[in-house]
């Protein structure tokens, strides 16, 4: 029948658990640094006592920027923004997207067709373009950026959720639950959500990585929060002019950004296995 050979599956899942470990380590280190930053910072964000464009050393781990502010301090503060964006956008996109996708998944005929077309149009708009339009209209702030990125994400999540819900609704265990007298809200809670959750959660984790990148891009374009509370994207933008003389100012936020996005993606990939009982218990 459709029985897959056992061994390749196991190889895949061993690779997955390695992904999960590396991913969680990367995200964990960055998260720890961000948490620490709330209690302790090497310098005050607006402290310019280090002198302009100082090289690393003398208490300034990464040197200073062109106004004399400590770069490492700014990197930590940028981390806060990166995490806030990732979590905030996922919250907005997840709640809106899953709700919308559920409704569309249950909708019948023309209503469902309308929802599908609307979602496709929304998705055809690049998230970044949508975010630029919203931020340009509503004014640059971290809140607007998160909201804008979250909205773009919601469309993607909604479309995925809609398809998954349709698949689950076609299964016989849904009919069995109806025959067993289970109400629709409970069917959603006990059958639909648990069965779509793994795929949706993995997707949300991937989207979190994209959200961080999107915010960095917005900031790089000057649509993020200005220094001294700059995000990594803004730091990259600021370091652009001096990249030849003090490359660390550009490299540090760049590496932090790449590490976070890779960490989030690896974690998402590794998570796939965890929520699946057919993988959890193998004979």
């Amino acid at each position: 029948m459709s029985r897959r050979p056992a061994a390749p599956g196991r190889v895949v899942s061993r690779r997955r658990s390695l992904h999960l470990m590396i991913g969680l380590t990367l995200v964990g280190i960055l998260a720890a640094a961000v948490i620490v930053s709330f209690f302790w910072l090497p310098f005050k964000p607006d402290d310019t006592s280090g002198g302009r464009l100082a090289p690393p050393g003398g208490g300034h781990l990464l040197g200073t920027d062109k106004l004399g502010r400590d770069l490492f301090t700014q990197l930590l503060i940028g981390g806060r923004i990166a995490f806030a964006t990732g979590l905030g956008a996922v919250a907005v996109g997840g709640v809106l997207g899953v709700t919308g996708g559920l409704l569309a998944g249950f909708a019948t005929r023309w209503l469902d067709d309308a929802a599908a077309v609307a979602l496709d149009i929304l998705i055809a708009f690049p998230t970044l373009l949508l975010a630029i339009l919203i931020v340009a209209g509503a004014g640059a702030s971290l809140g607007t950026a998160i909201l804008a990125i979250g909205l773009g994400m919601a469309a993607v999540v909604a479309r995925l959720t809609r398809v998954l819900v349709k698949q689950v609704l076609a299964r016989d265990y849904i009919t069995a639950a109806r025959v067993a007298g289970v109400s629709w809200p409970r069917i959603v809670g006990t059958h639909v959500l648990p069965n779509i959750a793994p795929v949706v959660l993995v997707n949300l984790a991937l989207q979190a990585g994209l959200a961080v990148l999107a915010e960095a891009s917005l900031s790089y374009l000057g649509l993020g929060t200005p220094p001294p509370n700059a995000s990594w994207g803004r730091l990259l933008f600021e370091a652009q002019a001096t990249v030849l003389t003090s490359p660390l100012a550009a490299l540090a936020p760049g590496i932090a950004l790449v590490a976070l996005v890779i960490g989030v993606n690896l974690t998402a990939d590794g998570l796939r296995d965890l929520a699946d009982p057919t993988r959890r218990r193998s004979r």
Binding site: R171, D172, Y173, T175, H191, N195, P277
Partner: peptide, 8 residues
């Protein structure tokens, strides 16, 4: 295979 919820 379709009539039993794999997560229960």
């Amino acid at each position: 295979y379709s009539s039993l919820d794999p997560r229960h």
